[in-house]
């Protein structure tokens, strides 16, 4: 079972990601801010990180850059989802080396399909 680290400070969005990805058959671990993410990520051996940008304290993009500099997490793909949708926000995310960028609001289907696409998975139903 693939493991996904969800970094999201907004409770509702976090619950949504958790619910959608769990339904999609992934093992979900949640972090509420950047510090917590950096704490758990190196030992977690996650297969993918779903990263929010507007986090309190350390910014989501900075967290991504830090993870990329860590040997243990350098190859872990990152999908960014954010309510910051202006051109410079999107560019910053791509520059940080994300695998996909999702602009909130995101439908459940779009979120799941985007994550599946990173793994090269296609499916008819979320439960499998």
């Amino acid at each position: 079972m693939r493991k996904i680290l969800v970094v999201e400070n907004d409770r509702v969005s976090r619950d949504l990601a958790s619910a959608v990805l769990t339904k999609g058959g992934y093992d979900v671990v949640c972090a509420r801010d950047g510090e917590e993410a950096l704490e758990v990520a190196p030992e977690l051996e996650a297969d993918l990180v779903l990263m929010d940008v507007g986090l309190p304290g350390i910014d989501g993009i900075e967290v991504v850059e830090t993870l990329h500099h860590d040997r243990r997490t350098a190859d872990t793909p990152v999908v960014v989802w954010s309510a910051l949708t202006m051109a410079q926000d999107v560019e910053r995310a791509w520059n940080a080396g994300c695998a996909a960028y999702l602009a909130k609001p995101v439908s459940a289907r779009e979120l799941l399909q985007s994550i599946d696409a990173v793994f090269g998975v296609t499916r008819e139903r979320a439960t499998g």
Binding site: D10, L16, A83, T85, P105, V106, A108, R125, A126
Partner: peptide, 25 residues
């Protein structure tokens, strides 16, 4: 404001989609 409005909308659309989309059974 764009960011602030998109955040609750993300919850609304996401959860509503889970309810309605047959993909989630």
């Amino acid at each position: 404001m764009s960011h602030e409005l998109r955040t609750p909308l993300n919850g609304i659309i996401g959860f509503a989609d889970m309810l309605s989309d047959p993909m989630f059974g």
